[in-house]
Amino acid sequence: MSFLGLGGSPNVSSQAKIQAAEAELDMVTGMFNQLVDICHKKCIGTSYNASDLDKNESLCVDRCVAKYFDTNLKVGDSMQKVGQNGAFGVNR
C-alpha cells in the first residue's frame, strides 16, 4: 500500500495512470473521513460546553490516529499472510 506514493507500474497509458492515481486519492480521502468520524465518536464528548478541544480530547485524538494507522498496517500484514497461505483458496 502506498499513500500518495502513487505506486503503479510505469509503461501504462496516461489514462490508466490517472485512474490509478484517482483511486488512491479516493482511498486517502476515504480513510481520512473515516478517521475523523471514528475518532470524534471515541474522543469528543457530546456535551458541547466549549468550542475548543481540551487536553484530554487532544491527546485522545493524537493517539486515536496513531493507533488507527498501526491497526491499518497490522491488518494489512495479516491479510497478506492469509493471502500467501492461500486461506482464501486463491493460491490453491
Binding site: I44, A50, D52
Partner: peptide, 9 residues
C-alpha cells in the same frame, strides 16, 4: 469543535 477536531486529525 468538529472543525478543530478535523484539523487536528
Amino acid at each position: 469543535k468538529f472543525l478543530k477536531h478535523s484539523e487536528r486529525v
